[in-house]
Nucleic acid binder design. Structure first.
Length: 683
DNA sequence: AGCCATGCACCG
DNA sequence: CGGTGCATGGCT
């Protein structure tokens, strides 16, 4: 190539967050990438804006990590739900464990750091201002300068207000409780998010990756063997290149200045080759940069744009976690991967300036704990075992790493989709659900437009596996203890069924969730639940209950339907109703007698009842978790207790509680129902 | 049909 | 011999 040889890195400069100083003019005039959208230069944020510590990420914000595979998740400090919060205040939470619910089973919790909550409280979030950029904008209605997209980020979410206040200018209700995905299905997101296959139209483009105030993630690419090889050419996904890089008409292209995360500046030649009536875009001269980042095939480079300068920033994400990666330099070739390495691999912390990109959580329902990528990567880490697949001739990068068998590169490519979908969160929402427990304190439940918001004062408990009974419909029932192992077994394979179902991105696989867009892991889960109706037949019983649920509600036919039960009927329903009725009566009696807050009754009564059916109530207290789980109807009884005593502290919060429904947990209703049943067939 | 990973011929 | 530009073929 006659074009100027790839320059060596320009003298490294520490990243200057707001250094609007234009890059020193070079004769070659490397180009700063302009935003693909006609975004007007943003005026300085209004004073109340504090939550955007603009500039390159000052380290990735705290986040939920490790929700992968069998490894327990690690709760790494506070999470600010604000996707754009670069500087969550770890010591100040405005709102914790704010449950953002979408589907019945979703215990999706949001934490807002103090700063962001303060913003939230100020009611500056307004759907009018809800921009795709997630930045400051002028309200089209009132012209007020506001920030939007702060809670769950970006576009096309329908504002759901939970009792907010009206904007004093445009009278729109501005306090946002949550956004619901509205127009963009997870599938669309997914289709758009496919690496290298974004849509080119501006609208879709804006959905490719989340926009932040200063760092706009553009796209990323997993390095192929040839990308990481010594040729020094990084093949760019065509659509990405055309969408985010300057238009070039000549094959020679343009020199492009890119800053890496350490502040080093590199100049790559951005060019293309004619190829089958099309073009093949490459960045040339990337070898030094790749090497400096110590990247290998399978790792991912990310491209972001630093606004308003339009500076191109290059980050990366290692394909493997650090320990594994480090291991591979020391580990003997035959070092067998530990199962956690092979199955529970967690991508290493993203080094990109926009860690949010890495948190493009593609939550994939079909994802198994061990994604193909992980396996492939694990294989590659082991070198030998992967190499057997035809090392391939030519330049399979003889260099430092021996992992780059050609076929592996292909495999990487092929598997990239899965990797992208999972990104940091290689976990299904079902799995995530297992890992989330509501905080011990009871939530206050707000129903807005028929959607519940359960607000918890405490953050969710992470890392404890909760065997929710879930199915594709995205529902669960905490009546897991009522399920037999067979029932469980029937439900569990659902997921593997999904696994097989989805392979092609061209398919309309509603099973695949791709919420993306800068949401944190859990936010995606929320979106998932809301935006992706998973094809499954909910029961008619209760929104929270799904096929397989054997709780008292679900085992009954809809009211007025089903066979009449005889007095002597010993069916599950009748037995349960009787038992619970007795329990209820017992409690009432006892409460009358003692007239004391009967916190302790919670477990014991049900326990006692379930064991003896009647009799004196023990005065001991807590139920062991196992006990509770094993208890036939503990949670429900507890739920009853919960409501009767209004005691906020329970070992379990019954998520099945629906305050607006009084047919189940409400003691009155329950009593009524039980009475009804018992009147039919008193025993 | 188009993308893209990579093979490979050509050229200096 | 290595870099460059293009061709090929796998894959979606």
């Amino acid at each position: 190539m006659s074009s100027p040889a790839p320059q060596q890195p320009v003298p490294a400069k520490p990243p200057t967050p707001s250094a609007a100083a234009a890059p020193a003019p070079v004769s070659a005039t490397p180009i700063s990438v302009q935003p693909p959208h006609p975004i007007q230069p943003k005026p300085p944020p209004p004073p109340q804006q504090q939550l955007q510590a603009a500039g390159p990420a000052s380290g990735p914000p705290p986040q939920l990590l490790n929700l992968v595979g069998s490894q327990p998740p690690v709760y790494r400090g506070p999470i600010c739900w604000n996707a754009y919060c670069k500087d969550p205040d770890p010591n100040s939470f405005g709102r914790r464990g704010w449950k953002v619910r979408s589907g019945p089973p979703f215990s999706v919790y949001a934490d807002l750091c103090g700063r962001c909550y303060s913003q939230f409280e100020q009611g500056i979030y307004c759907e009018t201002f809800h921009s795709e950029e997630g930045g400051w904008r002028n309200c089209e209605t009132c012209g007020r300068r506001v920030h939007c997209g702060c809670i769950v980020s970006i576009h096309k979410y329908q504002l759901r207000d939970a009792g907010g206040v009206d904007c004093n200018k445009c009278a729109r209700n501005t306090r946002t409780a949550m956004y619901y995905p509205q127009n963009v299905s997870g599938y669309e997101f997914q289709a758009q998010m496919r690496n290298g296959r974004p849509r080119v139209d501006a609208k879709a483009r804006s959905q490719l990756l989340p926009r932040s105030h200063s760092v706009t993630p553009l796209f990323e690419k997993m390095l192929s063997a040839s990308d990481a090889g010594r040729i020094g050419r990084l093949v760019l996904p065509k659509k990405c290149a055309e969408a985010y890089f300057p238009a070039i008409s000549q094959p020679e292209g343009l020199p492009l200045k890119v800053q890496d995360i350490s502040g080093k500046e590199w100049i790559f030649q951005f060019r293309f080759w004619p190829n089958n009536n099309s073009r093949m875009y490459v960045l040339e001269g990337v070898t030094p940069c790749i090497q400096s980042m110590q990247l290998q095939a399978g790792d991912t480079v990310t491209f972001s744009r630093l606004d308003p300068e339009g500076k191109l920033v290059m980050g990366f994400r290692k394909a493997t976690n650090l320990s594994t990666e480090q291991d591979q330099t020391t580990k003997p070739a035959n070092g067998a991967p530990t199962s956690s390495e092979a199955n529970g691999k967690v991508p290493a912390p993203d080094s990109s300036p926009n860690a949010a990109v890495a948190r493009q959580n593609k939550v994939n329902v079909e994802n198994n704990s061990s994604s193909p990528v992980e396996q492939a990567t694990a294989k590659m880490d082991k070198g030998g075992s992967a190499q057997k697949e035809s090392p391939g001739p030519g330049q399979s990068s003889p260099g430092a790493v021996k992992r780059k068998a050609t076929s592996v590169g292909q495999k990487i490519k092929r598997l990239r989709m899965d990797n992208e979908e999972s990104m940091e969160l290689k976990i299904t929402w079902e799995e995530a659900q297992e890992l989330l427990r509501p905080p011990p304190k009871a939530p206050s439940i707000v129903v807005v437009d028929g959607h519940e918001f359960e607000e918890y004062e405490e953050p969710p408990i992470l890392g404890r596996k909760t065997y929710f009974v879930t199915d594709q419909s995205g529902s669960s029932c905490e009546c897991a203890q009522e399920m037999s192992m067979e029932e469980l077994a029937q439900l569990i394979p659902i997921k593997s069924g999904l696994t097989g179902a989805k392979k092609s991105k061209g398919k309309m696989d509603v099973d695949t969730i791709d919420a993306s867009d800068g949401l944190d892991t859990l936010a995606n889960l929320a979106i998932l639940g809301e935006g992706e109706p998973i094809p499954s037949q909910p029961t008619t019983k209760h929104p929270r209950h799904r096929p397989g649920c054997s709780c008292i509600v679900c085992i009954q036919p809809p009211s007025g339907k089903g066979p009449k039960h005889k007095q002597t009927c010993t069916c599950n329903v009748c037995m349960t109703v009787r038992r619970r009725f007795r329990t209820l009566m017992l409690r009432r009696e006892k409460r009358k007698d003692t007239d004391s807050p009967c916190k302790k009754e919670a477990g014991q009564s049900s326990q006692t009842v379930s064991q003896s059916g009647s009799g004196p109530v023990a005065t001991t207290a807590s139920i062991s978790p196992q006990k509770t789980d094993a208890n036939a109807d503990g949670p429900e009884d507890m739920a009853v207790d919960h409501k009767m005593t209004s005691s906020p502290v329970k070992n379990h919060i019954d998520l099945n509680i629906q305050p607006d429904r009084d047919d189940e947990q409400s003691p009155k209703a329950e009593a009524a129902g039980a009475t009804r049943l018992l009147l039919d067939n008193p025993t």
